[in-house]
Design a protein around this nucleic acid. Structure first.
Length: 558
RNA sequence: UGGGGUGUGGCCAAGCGGUAAGGCAGCGGCUUUUGGUGCCGCCAUUCCCAGGUUCGAAUCCUGGCACCCCAGCCA
């Protein structure tokens, strides 16, 4: 059994970084993870986090956590706190390098003045609609704003007045003076600052009524922090010329470089903040940490481990090509981790009673059961065994063909870590529903099989007198279409109505009563489960099923 | 001919002119008191297409084609 290998896979960004280092361009590599605190982090962010923090770690450099908080409308403190928690949970730290773009608001203002003085920025009074019209289209060039040729002195004066709060929202903006005819729309005099009165910024309060745009803020923040490689997703590729324009026209301390990589797309889920926000606000799920959400908090509550998510990010690689990763890869990552580390337990999700007719009603014994079949270091526990047991309804059929390796009428089956039993009688109610099974107990079969009789297989069980009642939540994919919304036009219509199946009558082995929140187990023959972290009751969430080749093959026959 | 990108097996992804790594999925088999795990084997004569250069091309050149992104005072 191998542990998480730390041989980073090669990718084009590592190549660039190591080339830069070899060429002596930088003393150390410095990256940053720059979330906007307007939502919770999801699996796509994990890719970026692992890339940025991992790269710095592997090259002996640094990675900052920086909140990109230039749009106070959508951002808040709850998100800031959640993001910090999630990054830490994933296993990364930033020491004292926790920054906010808003830390630089006054520096940013001074840099804006510098652009104004150089004749590279101007105050524009076009309203939003006119500005759109002046911008031109994808195929036609734009036209110069009538305010484009104001003098630096006038611009400086106006910009100071904007800051002083003398103009209403939307009446004026500061724009870069680049090229209205550029084929790259981002260079057609992009807006640098807008006026926003009356919003309370979560960091700076009411101090500003002027907020800088991402395109202006990001390169300068990178330069101030000494970031050498500023990694972002593909949709910012067109912004790179603007990024470069900003850092090369300003007296910033360093010249960071932006490199783009493709964002993660995962089958059967969505990873857009807008959609995730809607799933929460419209009540399709129960909050950002709903175990069906691809958020880090959701995955955590579902039972995913940080190591599995890091492994996943490692395995998918970093490239510039459009991708959509199969859910099976993520599932393989968590199974691989949990198979090695999760203690085994017995839990009956949908119980049916078994009475051992020849077992002393007053007897009770404690059968030793290893916590892990391959790893003795995890120890063992004792399973109480008595005359009445629970087994799963799915593990009994009155008649079945030879391939069915469970209990059938008249057939023998082994109880996991216990004895062999034979089903002698099926007790049904008036409606024909099976009430209980009367079975014969085979003594001396703890280690051996009975002579001359065929044991079909092994099933799990829990003592009916000792088992703990529990609720088990069976989670499945949130959407039943690989690319939600692609065909239907609305991802919401592709939501899987059966993404959560709650089983309130489950019974689990006694020691599970002491399970701590988020503690993970393998319920043998069922899957991996973890104790839910926000229920007082004994609730277990299914992380992922076990791989099941039998179910796969039988379902194909129907 | 708006601009910027990307095209290697079902899904990812190495490959950097010397004759297609690896993972996931799939398919066979062995082991197994989890239909799990583990182990073994199979799975691209071909890299979007067409030409060209070369002794030799997924890698270089030319021309196509397909898909993605961009017209927020969002990030």
């Amino acid at each position: 059994m191998h542990e998480e290998p730390h041989t980073p896979k090669p990718n084009f960004i590592r190549q660039i970084v190591s080339d830069d280092l070899a060429a002596g361009k930088h003393g150390i590599v410095h990256t940053r993870f720059p979330p906007e605190p307007n939502g919770y982090l999801h699996i796509g962010h994990a890719k970026s986090i692992v890339l940025n923090f991992g790269l710095a770690e592997d090259f002996g450099g640094l990675c900052n956590l920086r909140f990109d908080d230039t749009n106070p409308h959508k951002e808040n403190q709850e998100f800031v706190a959640a993001i910090k928690e999630d990054v830490r949970w994933l296993g990364f730290g930033w020491d004292d390098r926790l920054y906010f773009a808003s830390d630089y608001f006054s520096n940013l203002f001074d840099y804006a003045l510098e652009l104004i003085d150089k004749g590279l920025a101007y105050v524009c009074e076009l309203n939003a609609e006119d500005m759109r019209e002046y911008r031109g289209t994808l195929k036609e060039p734009g036209r110069d704003s009538p305010f484009r040729d104001r003098s630096p002195a006038e611009n400086r004066d106006l910009f100071q007045q904007m800051r002083a709060g003398e103009f209403p929202d939307g009446s004026k903006v500061l724009r870069a003076r680049i090229d209205m005819a550029s084929p790259n729309i981002n260079l057609r005099d992009p807006v640098l600052y807008r006026i926003r009165h009356g919003v309370i910024h979560h960091q700076t309060g009411a101090e500003w009524c002027l907020y800088p745009m991402y395109d202006f803020t990001h390169p300068i923040s990178d330069a101030i922090e000494g970031v050498t490689h500023s990694l972002c997703t593909l949709e910012f590729e067109d912004h790179r010329p603007l990024y470069d324009w900003i850092v090369s026209n300003l007296s910033v301390p360093t010249q960071p470089r932006q490199i783009e990589f493709s964002r993660l797309n995962l089958e059967y889920t969505v990873t857009s903040k807008r959609k995730l926000t809607e799933l929460v606000s419209e009540g399709h799920v129960n909050g950002w940490d709903d175990p069906r959400m691809p958020t880090l908090s959701g995955l955590r509550r579902r039972g995913y481990t940080p190591a599995a998510i890091r492994d996943f990010c490692q395995r998918i690689g970093i490239t510039k090509s459009e991708n959509r990763i199969e859910m099976q890869l993520l599932e393989d990552c968590i199974r691989d981790d949990l198979n090695r580390h999760a203690p085994r337990r017995l839990a009956v999700i949908n119980p049916i009673k078994v009475v051992l007719s020849n077992y002393d009603d007053n007897a009770c014994e404690y059968l030793p059961a290893p916590n892990h079949p391959q790893d003795p270091s995890l120890g063992e526990r004792r399973l109480p065994f008595c005359r009445e047991l629970w087994i799963d309804r799915a593990d009994f059929q009155e008649t079945a063909n030879k391939k069915y390796k469970r209990l059938v009428s008249g057939g023998l089956v082994r109880l996991r870590n216990g004895y062999v039993i034979r089903c002698d009688e099926v007790i049904k109610d008036a409606g024909g529903e099976i009430q209980e099974l009367h079975c014969h107990w085979y003594p001396d079969t703890l280690e051996n099989n009975p002579d001359g009789e065929k044991v079909r297989g092994v099933i799990h069980w829990v003592s009916a007198r000792h088992g703990e009642p529990a609720e088990i939540r069976l989670y499945d994919r949130l959407f039943n279409i690989a690319n939600p919304g692609k065909k239907s036009g609305d991802y919401r219509s592709d939501i899987n109505p059966d993404s959560l199946l709650t089983c309130v009558n489950a019974v689990v082995e006694p020691c599970l009563a002491a399970a701590t929140p988020e503690q993970r187990f393998q319920f043998e023959r069922e899957g991996y489960f973890c104790r839910d972290s926000s229920s007082e009751k004994l609730v277990f969430n299914r992380t992922v099923t076990l791989r099941d080749t039998w179910a796969r093959n039988t379902s194909e026959e129907t």
